[in-house]
Amino acid sequence: MSWRGQLSQIVRELRIHFCQTSSSSDATREFILKNYKDLKTLNPGLPILIRECSGIQPRLWARYAYGVERSVPLEGLTEPQITAKLEELSKYAS
């Protein structure tokens, strides 16, 4: 999908927060397993920080230019939905 290649033009940093063990983060872990390599290959310079911490609710953060940040909670979403959220975040442009 083309937006994946365009990701680093808008997003400066991606952060994925999730819990190592809890079930609410299962989809997030799946998302990382399936998509990280792809995203990283297409955007080699983009830092995609995968940060785990026990007991937290999964969240996806995106940092844009000039320090603007947005985040979406990923609790209760399935892996395709998370991908959709990422696409949404990648379109933010102002």
């Binding site: 190592q20 872990r29 397993l33 390599k37 990283k40 995968i50 785990e52």
Partner: peptide, 10 residues
Amino acid sequence: PTVWPQSITP
């Protein structure tokens, strides 16, 4: 830290 399979990184 979570252990990811080696294949995850390009």
